[in-house]
């Protein structure tokens, strides 16, 4: 019975001691300890969340980059193909223009050549005529130098004339 009878002295001192311990530990130990643990847990959670967000941001950026890259590639291809088309067009146009010009030049040249040829021919004809006149004149002068020959010619001419 003595064993299970609480003694007042010990009850009193236990109450006092426990309350003192409770207030001292509560104020100087549990409050800072729990606060620090909570803070650290929160900061760890924050860090994890941030890391997750960063990862998402990264993947988002990577995706965006890829999309951008794809777009850029497509645009480049488009630009390249357009440029090629334009180049081909220009080359074709130039070729055609050159062709036309060449043809025109050739035509002009031919016309000029023809003109020059005609002029030259006319010139040659004149000179030939003059030469033949001069030749004829010289021949005539030679032939008509002596009287006999003049008479002969007159006679011949007269012979030729048919009446």
């Amino acid at each position: 019975m003595e064993l299970v009878t609480p003694e007042i002295g010990l009850v009193f001192w236990t109450t006092v001691s426990f309350l003192v311990l409770f207030f001292l530990l509560g104020k100087f130990a549990w409050k800072p300890i729990m606060g620090a643990i909570d803070d650290r847990e929160r900061s760890i959670e924050d860090a994890l969340l941030k890391a997750e967000a960063a990862k998402e941001e990264m993947s988002r950026l990577t995706n965006e980059n890829e999309v951008l890259l794809k777009q850029a590639r497509a645009e480049r291809d488009l630009i390249l193909s357009e440029a090629k088309k334009i180049k081909d067009q220009i080359v074709a146009d130039a070729k055609e223009a050159a062709h036309k010009e060449g043809a025109r030049q050739i035509e002009l040249a031919r016309v000029e050549i023809n003109n020059q040829k005609a002029i030259a021919m006319a010139d040659v004809k004149n000179q030939v005529a003059q030469l033949s006149i001069q030749v004829a004149e010289k021949i005539l002068q030679n032939q008509l130098q002596d009287q006999q020959k003049q008479d002969e010619l007159v006679s011949q001419l007269l012979k030729e004339v048919k009446l």
Binding site: L25, A29, W30, P32, I33, A36
Partner: peptide, 20 residues
């Protein structure tokens, strides 16, 4: 009581000193 106070006040001090 003394043991508990020594242990947990030093632990509490450690938390202050090594915050985070």
């Amino acid at each position: 009581l003394v043991l508990l106070l020594i242990i947990f006040l030093s632990v509490s001090a450690a938390y202050k000193k090594r915050a985070g």
